[in-house]
Design a protein around this nucleic acid. Structure first.
Lengths: 176, 176
DNA sequence: AGCTTATACCTAGATGCCGATGTATATCGA
DNA sequence: TCGATATACATCGGCATCTAGGTATAAGCT
């Protein structure tokens, strides 16, 4: 998910690690902070795979920067990861938001719609957090205010997202 | 987060691994499936720490079960983890929902309210996913429908949760 | 001149998670 | 009776992540 974010940000423009760090921190970081010891090894991995290259530049205010640029293989890789998103990328909200943040780069409204439809299918399938035997519990039956909260919040999110998905898919289908 | 879920479910009643697996899968699993290779080592860790004990029972329909029971140290540990939740437990939705699912076990409305207030503080602090320089971008300015979606959905969730938090905190404060 | 802060990058060790694989038992339908 | 399925538990290798440290430069303040 971190690698996806790195590829996604670099697709738009070359960036150095520190800048990347700030952007990734905003995207997922207010929720799940990203450590240096996670970011820099990830950059190295992507470099070793041939998806990005670095040029050393004098730092504007401090130590020299390593400007990172996506290679054409790297651009391919981002598009592949978006098109062939894993199940967890679709279901986990953090990962899904990362996919969504860079889905614009897919630049093909049919492919974009396909990804959105996978999320739509996931949201449509009935699922609850708590069960009484095989019977899913409703918010009112959760048994305590906290579990009620979970169900209430999850429902509100799901409804807002479904509305947005319906509207956006209609627009994408009209384009195609 | 997995350990918290295990401690939480076992706080209510003794369970065997397979049953635990189903419950954890429902709690977080429709979003982030839990692998056997993750669950069973986690159970072992908790056992080694003295937080749970196992008794072998003949399986109802198959291989023998290991019934897992929380020790009193294990019950203490759950309460401690709820009271002293880490920052990521508060900010990450998956983790937060896990905390919420077992917060009823804290059985002290003041302590419960304290945890909720930490989440409230997190939701209140301004934060965006995308920035134009230092300026956070609004949903309408996101630049593409997908980033607009992120901001729209996040706002809807945040508003629903804030309403629920306000109402629940009012009730908890009235109790105390 | 010395201190702090922000910038900028890096590594080592530990840990938790995943995927793959293995073992075994009981039930049920073909 | 044979295979498929659900139950039930476990290990191992690999990998991403976190924690905790470290190095170095430039700017601004006192």
């Amino acid at each position: 998910m971190l690698e996806l974010a790195i590829l996604g940000f670099l697709y738009e423009q070359p960036l150095h690690g520190y800048d990347l760090k700030r952007r990734v921190a905003h995207l997922t970081g207010h929720v799940r902070p990203i450590a240096d010891g996670t970011l820099y090894p990830a950059i190295k991995r992507l470099e070793r795979s041939g998806w990005l290259e670095r040029q050393t530049e004098p730092g504007s205010r401090a130590a020299p920067r390593h400007m990172l640029t996506l290679t054409s293989a790297g651009r391919e890789e981002l598009l592949r990861r978006l098109r062939e998103a894993g199940e967890t990328d679709i279901s986990d909200e953090n990962r899904w938001f990362t996919v969504l943040a860079f889905l614009r780069h897919l630049a093909d409204s049919v492919a974009q719609a396909e990804v959105l439809r996978r999320r739509q299918a996931f949201l449509t399938q009935p699922s609850s957090f708590f069960y009484e035997g095989a019977q899913p519990l409703r918010a009112e039956e959760a048994g305590d205010p906290f579990r009620e909260g979970i169900l209430t919040i999850a429902r509100a999110t799901s409804e807002a997202e479904s509305r947005w998905l319906d509207a956006t898919l209609a627009r994408l289908d009209a384009e195609a």
